[in-house]
Nucleic acid binder design. Structure first.
Length: 859
RNA sequence: GCGAGAGUGGCGGAACUGGCAGACGCACUGGACUUAGGAUCCAGCCCGCAUUGUCGGAUAGGGGUUCGACUCCCCUCUCUCGCACCA
């Protein structure tokens, strides 16, 4: 008998699938399409367990859909632009391109070794000009339609590196390369995509995505953050300026006793310039902008501000009120200025108390009065208006509309809808990205690169500058060009695009990855899109998915696409986690640096930390390659799928892998030890009478088909699907161990069970099952075998164990025929001796009968 | 801080629609087979017990709804993810 040798088995079937071209697909209008996509990886070096899990989940679904007869598109590619390539280039003195392409080659081989069913002919890498040229084209179209525009923004700047820092490169307000160098905010021109134009539609369609997890939709809704309110105009005293504020509480406008600017607001400088307050205000602004926005607006942060020395007119009361700059006001939200109503907003209240500003109650509870002097906190509940002129006595919820209308009639405001969502800043001052195809001409201004000059190639013969700076602004051969209008000298934009742009449309390109006449082949994209099932990490719940949705709508409006949404169904998988090891002296340790609970360098005992997401920084990583080498791909796949349901975090366990390995060996032995009988037997026809034992196996076989199908189809719970198959295996083994002699009809029933088990396992562990299927005497290749269906009559049971409760506590059980009527069940339960003893002489108030499950006697 | 989730034995998890809490697996314990076992097979395995029982308790903690709550509602705690230039 052959021993299970996963390496040999897996290589054999991988070449078989490749030679047969199993997973190469074309548009076939006679078959139902199924587009399955997993989030493509960043080529960071080698695959990690997160990839393995993501792609194992996807592969089960893909193979399952193949077996159900779908025409399955299952592509793979590389999100290949990005900062890690630049960091690696500096560290290893190499080129980002070289590093990236080498990683791609290595990781492709690893994915192939995992046996994933990808159509490799469609592979794409976003760093190739054949890819990003179309991104540049779409950018130009967006520019022409006003969807891409330029505006000033603030970026993190390290004076020593002379470069812009990403948020993750800022450590405690300092540069990650220079931990004593404070990061400053620098104003800079940046390109933005007008996602806010689509805010309303993005929000509305959250209700039209039933295949998405509700939690993701909720997060997206909150991120878009629609709020209804009003713009109110406050004229500045001794000035032509009018300050616009956005508020959702226009009902409190009579209580607005001061006004606050966000530190970034351009009027701050303008209104204070040349005054004696200019210096103090400027210092406050500078100090405040160093603190991250979410920190400085946090509830626990002390509300701080500075008086500008200027006043404006409250349009409702016509009183002069002071203008402040405050740390808790966000420039990005609303208009970047607020009217402050200290009596009815807690932040405003704290601010007013700190700076001795006046308060005026304008809403009071119906049952009592409120006085400014006695208030210890803002009154934020509903109530009735007071001190509000003609609106006194109106309920505040009704006043919202009335006051908005009143302000509008006076030309001092209007109702509006505001979104929390900001436009998408896509400019990156980086080298390893797609160039933004824009030209600057001294005479003609900002303009697009003519379409026939695309792509704007990213030159690959450049090296990063000191501190990781992009070489593009320093390379005349790149940025020097001619203006297409006047023929005079022009310069190119040297910023590159956010890599989220590439990942916002790669799924479209997969439908026609080699198409040369445009971004997409219209017919192919129409056949395949939308993606039927998208699978990826929960960490992408907001940004990547929202950007992709936005981009889809833009492409639709440009006429490239017919769909409104890119992903019909979404599965967000959890993280792969593992405990951390830490040595007092040597910090975090890799698992292989620990021996018997001690650091291998110094021999000191180590601290075991709680289980967190596997990452290089905490060194709690397991290299999938080592597991593949030791156990084979099938075992690794099996473990990932069995250990927890996909949407939950997966707790890593070396022993668990061992368990998966043992299970596959049990399956292997069952087939190889009984190969003669099994390959000669005829599968059970469902008609010949069976002994109770065999009937049990027959029933279990069909129950397992139902269970596994439901688990995969309805909720992707592969862990319970696999445990059901384990139960079937246990049942078969039990029968074989307990039977001295096995009849022909018995072998038929066993054959049916074993065949079924092998088929059901195929999507999870495709290699071993293809091998066993062949041994069982079938023609090669399970991918083309139909998924089994269960027979309803095979599931039927004659009797059922029903629980009897008295007052909700289980007191007895009875085996009753399933056909028994409710009345009969009730009578039989009440006759039960144990039940009788618990009822005693108490009165039976109620009897609840739940068919096939339980009887509850209430006394 | 804000937004969103999660919390069940020693561990991963199961219980899908409110109906037997702990399926399946791991670890552990005992036994069988064996020259040997990190193989295999069999059995046990939530906690408690001065009533070993078809007993009592137990699903982060507290309260509520219900004949009945891991499941629904309220409060608290802990952990995870996201927070717009990481991917």
């Amino acid at each position: 008998m052959k021993k299970y040798d996963p390496q040999a088995v897996e290589v054999r079937w991988q070449s078989f699938w490749e030679e047969e071209g199993y997973f190469e697909v074309t548009e076939d209008k006679t078959r139902k399409k199924y587009y399955l996509l997993e989030m493509f990886p960043y080529p960071s070096g080698k695959i990690h367990m997160g990839h393995v899990r993501n792609y194992a989940i996807g592969d089960v679904v893909a193979r399952y859909k193949w077996m159900r007869g779908f025409n399955v598109l299952h592509p793979m590619g590389w999100d290949a632009f990005g900062m890690p390539a630049e960091n690696a280039a500096i560290e290893n003195n190499t080129h980002p391109a070289k590093w990236t392409y080498e990683n791609i080659d290595y990781m492709r081989a690893q994915l192939q070794r995992m046996g994933f069913s990808y159509d490799w002919d469609r592979e794409l890498a976003t760093c190739r000009p054949e890819y990003y040229r179309w991104e540049q084209l779409v950018f130009l179209k967006m520019f022409n339609e006003g969807l891409a525009y330029r505006k000033k923004t603030y970026v993190n700047w390290c004076g020593l590196c002379q470069t812009v820092l990403a948020n993750e490169q800022v450590v405690d307000g300092c540069c990650w390369r220079h931990l004593d160098q404070e990061v400053v905010l620098k104003e800079m021109d940046s390109w933005f995509l007008k996602i806010t134009d689509y805010a309303k539609e993005l929000l509305e369609y959250c209700d039209k995505l039933p295949g998405w997890p509700e939690k993701v939709l909720t997060m997206q809704r909150n991120w878009i953050g629609e709020s209804h309110g009003a713009i109110i105009r406050f004229p500045v005293i001794d000035s032509d300026h009018v300050i616009e504020v956005f508020t959702t509480r226009q009902d409190t406008v009579f209580g607005a006793t001061f006004l606050c600017f966000a530190p970034e607001h351009p009027l701050v400088h303008e209104l204070t310039e040349g005054s004696d307050r200019a210096k103090e205000v400027a210092e406050f602004v500078e100090r405040t902008l160093k603190v991250e926005a979410f920190l400085r607006t946090a509830d626990f942060t002390v509300k701080e501000g500075v008086f500008t020395g200027r006043y404006c007119l409250n349009p409702a009361t016509e009183e002069e009120i002071p203008i402040y700059v405050a740390n808790f006001v966000l420039y990005e939200y609303g208009t970047g200025a607020i009217m402050a109503v200290p009596t009815h907003d807690q932040r405003d209240f704290e601010f007013a108390k700190k700076y001795g500003l006046s308060l005026r109650v304008v809403i009071k509870p119906e049952d009592r009065d409120l006085t400014e002097e006695e208030m210890a906190e803002a009154y934020v509940d509903e109530g009735v208006l007071v001190n509000s002129g003609q609106f006194n006595g109106t309920r505040n919820m009704e006043a919202l509309d009335k006051i908005a209308d009143y302000l509008e009639s006076k030309g001092m405001g209007h109702k509006t809808v505001n979104f929390r969502l900001k436009d998408w800043g896509i400019s990156r001052q980086r080298y390893w990205g797609a160039p933004i195809p824009i030209l600057y001409c001294a005479k003609c201004g900002v303009g697009p690169v003519p379409e026939d000059q695309l792509p704007v190639l990213l030159p690959l013969d450049l090296d990063l500058k000191e501190g990781g700076r992009s070489p593009l602004p320093h390379e005349a051969s790149f940025y020097e060009t001619k203006c297409p209008h006047c023929g005079g000298p022009a310069t190119r934009e040297t910023d590159t695009m956010d890599t989220f742009v590439e990942s916002s449309w790669y799924f479209d390109r997969f439908t026609s990855p080699r198409y040369e006449n445009g971004p997409f082949d219209t017919e192919k994209i129409a056949y395949w899109m939308p993606v039927d099932q998208y699978i990826g990490g929960i960490e992408h719940a907001i940004m990547h998915l929202l950007y992709s949705r936005f981009y889809t709508k833009v492409l639709r409006d440009m006429g490239y696409l017919e769909v409104d949404e890119p992903f019909t169904n979404l599965l967000t998988q959890g993280m792969v986690c593992k405990e951390t090891f830490r040595c007092r002296q040597h910090g975090y340790l890799f698992p292989e640096e620990v021996k018997e609970g001690r650091c291998m360098q110094c021999g000191k005992g180590i601290e075991t930390g709680s289980s967190v997401k596997m990452s290089k920084s905490t060194k709690n990583i397991v290299d999938p390659q080592k597991l593949i080498d030791r156990y084979g791909a099938d075992t690794v796949r099996m473990f990932c799928l069995f250990a927890s349901p996909p949407e939950r975090d997966l707790e890593w366990s070396d022993e668990g892998v061992e368990g998966a390995w043992r299970f596959l060996n049990r399956v292997w032995r069952l087939v190889t030890e009984n190969r003669e009988h099994l390959s000669n037997a005829k599968p059970y026809d469902g008609i010949l009478p069976l002994s109770p034992d065999l009937k049990d196996i027959h029933r279990k076989t069909h129950q397992t088909i139902k269970k596994v199908t439901d688990d995969i189809e309805d909720r992707f719970h592969f862990n319970t699907a696999i445990s059901a198959i384990m139960e079937l295996l246990n049942k078969i083994n039990q029968f074989l161990n307990n039977s001295a002699e096995i009849s022909e009809v018995a072998w038929s029933a066993i054959k049916e069970a074993v065949d079924t088990m092998v088929i059901l396992l195929h999507p999870v562990v495709p290699h071993i099952t293809d091998e066993l299927w062949e041994m069982l005497g079938h023609p090669q290749g399970l991918t083309t075998v139909s998924w089994p269906t269960y027979r309803e009559e095979a599931l039927e049971e004659e009797s059922r164990l029903v629980v009897i409760q008295v007052n909700g506590k289980v007191r007895s059980r009875m085996e009753i025929p399933v056909s028994l009527a409710e009345k009969e069940i009730q009578d039989q339960a009440l006759r039960d001796k144990r039940v009788q003893s618990f009822i005693g002489d108490k009165e039976v108030k109620r009897v609840i009968v739940v068919q096939k499950k339980l009887v509850n006697v209430v006394v």
